[in-house]
Amino acid sequence: MTTQLGIALLGAGRMAHVYGPKINAHPGLRLEVVYNHRIASAQRAVDLYGGRATEDLEDALKDPAVDAVVIATPTDTHVDYIETVARAGKPIYCEKPLDQTLDRVDRALTALEAHPVPFMLGFNRRFDPDNGALRTAVQNGDIGRLTMLMSWSREPAPPPIEYVRASGGYFVDATIHDIDLLCWIAGERPVEVHASGSCVFNPEIGAEGDFDLTMTTFRMPSGALVHINNSRACAYGFDQRLEAFGDDGMLQTINHRDDPLIRWDGRRTEAREPLKHFFLERYDQSFYNALDEFHRAIIEDRQPSATAQHGRDALAIALACQTSAKTRQFVCPDYGT
């Protein structure tokens, strides 16, 4: 296989328009085909990013110019596409989560065991430079033994109610990013979780049985405690921070601003610019870095670092959080056998 890989992009929605430009920007990737069951949507993406449009998945997978596939379709289609693409023998990059239920995720794992192609799940926050630097420092022992790990993830405004209805719930839709990231940093997964949820910003979300404000704690096998603070609304922008506390010190990541300078003059003593508006802006580089990891793994003939099993673990934890918030009890995640 050459070092430049031809890509079939499945989907033409929001996330496909995230990955299209990143594929074009990467010197080792080449967009060959955009597939969507609505050919007009596929053609609109092709008009922007190149390649050719098709509404026939088999046509895309049989194209000899296609070396790998990026799945950027709605969550409830992921497992079916994973099964089909794995049977075709193509490496797969799939947007998170694998699915909203463990039974269907196990179907995907079974397909990948039967057809062991390289597979990567799009937990892009692992590939954010700030998050990666904090993990490296923790793993290197810069703060000694890790005892507490905390994240703040607050979104600018609640999503449309139609999105909430199809999301699988706040923990599965959003907290799952924090879950995967903090387990990756800590190098372990929780033995029990406790979560609390409320709905204070949009009563329509509460009417759907979901939350727009949550707090989650994990107890890790090492004894370390983890805290996740999530909000569907934040007046000052997209609030994304981490803190790692250990025997020998503390590490933090800070929010990104368009103007990173802290300004002191006769009118102000802090930066007044708003935070990066949302995940597309704040984590722009991470999507490119994630595709770079996918490319390097294929070229180096190894499995990518964010695996399907990591996706199952994160979903099991997210579902345990959901149960805990509704029952107000500690819950042990179902990690399977």
Rank of each mutant, 00 (worst) to 15 (best):
Y283N: 15
H227C: 10
T77W: 14
A42N: 02
A235P: 01
V172G: 01
Q309A: 12
D259M: 07
V191E: 14
V193M: 02
I317Q: 06
T323I: 09
T214W: 03
F330Y: 09
R52V: 12
L10H: 04
G206E: 04
H194R: 13
G209W: 11
A157F: 06
W152P: 00
P333D: 09
R267K: 12
V226Q: 01
R135N: 06
V70H: 05
R135C: 04
A318G: 07
G209D: 02
D99N: 15
L213Q: 13
W184Y: 04
C199K: 04
P160Q: 07
D239W: 12
L291Q: 11
A316L: 02
A42P: 00
Q329C: 10
V46D: 05
P260N: 12
D178P: 00
G223D: 02
G144D: 08
Q240R: 15
G266A: 13
A16H: 05
R44P: 00
Q252E: 13
L98F: 02
P27N: 08
A65V: 05
E83M: 08
D67C: 05
A8L: 07
V191C: 03
L315V: 03
Y19E: 04
P333N: 11
E208P: 00
A53L: 06
N289V: 03
A314D: 00
E113N: 12
L261A: 13
R135E: 04
N255P: 01
F211K: 10
G197F: 05
R165T: 08
D248E: 14
H256N: 12
A166Q: 14
I299H: 12
A224Q: 04
M148E: 13
S196H: 09
I205G: 09
I7Q: 07
R257P: 01
A16R: 08
F119R: 02
A314Q: 00
I185N: 03
G187L: 06
T75S: 03
L181R: 03
Q303A: 13
G132C: 04
A244Y: 05
V200D: 03
L9F: 11
H277P: 06
L275C: 03
F294V: 10
R241E: 13
